[in-house]
Design a protein around this nucleic acid. Structure first.
Lengths: 141, 141
DNA sequence: AGCGTCTTTAGAGTATATCTAATTTGATAT
DNA sequence: ATATCAAATTAGATATACTCTAAAGACGCT
């Protein structure tokens, strides 16, 4: 995603293209490894203080709400973020908490009638287990 | 799950049946609403202080590791727990964070070959959206 | 330029979870 | 029964992750 594309995608969802928001989007564009909010906060301020902690968290929340960014919750650890560009599922490592992308495929919908008044926004598959790095040494925690 | 069954299931996975563990399992048996660790801690100590915070958290972690209990991570909120008795998927409400059970159905596996050295322990579908209570009033946040 | 709104800020505050080191408990062997 | 020792528990401090507050600043519109 280049500069103009980031600006346009922000404006498409009704968010101003501020330096702070731009930096978050740019960082996620360049770093596909599902960073945590703390990592994004640190990276954005690495060179020169640009964005306070509150702003980073607020912007991540706004971007998630707007549908540009996805958050993956990980048990007992900080949530991780990625761009919602290409559809994909996630693999979460039990041992190190890292999140990896899995190729997308369609998920069967629940029986209609089950949902009732619920409004489904999205549907995700999460695989759990040991990642490529952790699988060899199966030591427990 | 009655008393004996709880004791047996603990012993099956190599955990002693202590009063504190028993209380956690019994609470989860009686309360299907996916309580948080804090709620379980409070409930177990409601009548008569029985279990410290650390023990409650340790036991929940041990029970998850042993496969008796499942944790559902929720973005920006406390994780929620349930018994791994019947297989089911989960619905998480964007607005109130509550977790509801969805009927189980099989999930297609990823293309073999994709996984590489990864070891998959489980695979879960998570639906997100607005629950029955929150759907009517669609106020933001 | 003036106006109203959206955005950002620093730092305190809250919620959640883990750690520490001493003590107690419970299963097993004697 | 009792001794033994690893497993389990404890209170409370500490760490981590996130949110709130009130004031100031920036943006887009006229």
């Amino acid at each position: 995603m280049n500069g103009g594309a980031i600006k346009r995608s922000l404006e498409n969802v009704g968010l101003r293209c501020t330096a702070q928001r731009y930096a978050v989007m740019a960082f996620l564009t360049d770093h596909k490894g599902h960073p945590t909010a703390a990592e994004i906060f640190a990276a954005v301020n690495h060179v020169d203080p640009l964005s306070s902690r509150a702003t980073t968290y607020n912007n991540l929340r706004d971007l998630v709400k707007a549908g540009l960014v996805r958050e993956v919750a990980v048990e007992g650890r900080a949530g991780r973020f990625d761009l919602r560009g290409l559809r994909h599922h996630h693999f979460i490592c039990d041992r190190c908490g890292s999140v990896e992308d899995m190729e997308w495929y369609d998920v069967p919908r629940p029986r209609s009638g089950f949902l009732g008044k619920r409004v489904v926004r999205e549907c995700q598959i999460v695989f759990r287990g040991l990642c490529t790095k952790c699988a060899p040494r199966r030591t427990s925690r």
